Simulated assay, not measured.
Amino acid sequence: MDVRAQRVIPVKPSDVAAYAMDWRHDHEWTQGITSAELTTETAGGGFGVGAEVTRTAYFLRKRIDYVLRVEEHEPPHLLDMRSVRGPFPMHVTYRFDDHPDGTLAQIRVRGDAGGFYRLAGPLLAPMVRANLRKDLRDLERALT
């Protein structure tokens, strides 16, 4: 699965990234996430490359607990995270690029469903895409 969504948000990239890259806001704009916690800080402390965020979410009516490790962190343009614990391998990339009308916000999710989620395989990509579109809509609503 490789799913992408994008949306132009009428806010400058630094403001979009400051909000979206702050794990404390994950539950406010990311579909299904009920909580997020910084469970491993960077070597120097805080959030950045090497930090890990534990998220609790619900997808297909099932609770999912997973840990994302920050692979790249280049505010205000890029946050790239890979799952290190969870029900299936996942790679999530957020990009926030300059656009004449504000910010071109993009989310890309890559991964392979396993176990219970493999049964939903044909429906998984369209459902993830719909959720990503809602995420970007809710991100815009939170900022405007």
Rank of each mutant, 00 (worst) to 15 (best):
T144F: 15
F116C: 05
A130S: 12
A36C: 10
D98S: 07
W29D: 02
T39Q: 12
H27T: 03
A43I: 03
R129K: 15
A130E: 04
L68Y: 04
R4C: 13
E37P: 01
L38I: 05
E72P: 02
T30S: 14
N131P: 01
L60Q: 06
P87G: 12
I64D: 00
P76S: 08
K134H: 01
G44D: 00
L79M: 09
P100K: 08
D138H: 05
D65S: 15
R85V: 06
H27Y: 09
V16E: 01
T144S: 12
V67P: 00
E72V: 09
R129F: 10
R141D: 07
F116P: 00
R55Y: 09
E28V: 03
L119F: 13
F47S: 01
V128Q: 03
K12W: 05
S83W: 04
E41A: 05
A17I: 05
F116Q: 07
E72A: 15
G86F: 08
K134L: 05
P122Y: 15
M127T: 12
W23M: 13
V16A: 07
G111P: 00
R4L: 08
R85S: 14
Y66H: 10
P87D: 08
V84C: 15
P89R: 05
A51L: 04
T30I: 13
Q31H: 11
A142R: 05
G115N: 07
V3P: 07
M81L: 14
T30Q: 03
T34L: 10
H91R: 14
G44Y: 01
G111V: 04
R95Q: 14
H25R: 08
A43P: 00
H27V: 05
D2M: 13
E74F: 11
P13R: 04
G45F: 08
R85L: 11
D97Q: 11
I9Y: 10
F96S: 00
I33T: 04
D112N: 13
T103L: 15
E41V: 01
G32Y: 04
P89M: 12
H25G: 02
R141L: 14
G45A: 09
T144G: 08
R61H: 07
R55S: 10
R24W: 07
H77D: 12
A125V: 02
G86A: 08
G115Y: 11
Y94H: 08
M90A: 12
K12D: 11
H99F: 11
Y94I: 06
V11I: 09
W29N: 03
W23H: 06
A18M: 12
Q31W: 04
L132K: 11
D135V: 00
F88S: 03
G46P: 01
A142K: 08
L143F: 09
Y94W: 15
A36H: 04
P126H: 11
R55E: 02
H99S: 06
M21F: 14
V84L: 15
Y58I: 09
N131I: 10
L132D: 02
L38R: 01
G111R: 04
R95T: 02
E71W: 07
W29F: 15
R7A: 06
R95N: 06
D2F: 09
L68C: 12
T144P: 02
A5K: 00
E52G: 06
R7Y: 10
S14F: 12
E37T: 10
W23L: 10
L136D: 00
G50R: 03
D101F: 12
A36R: 02
R85E: 11
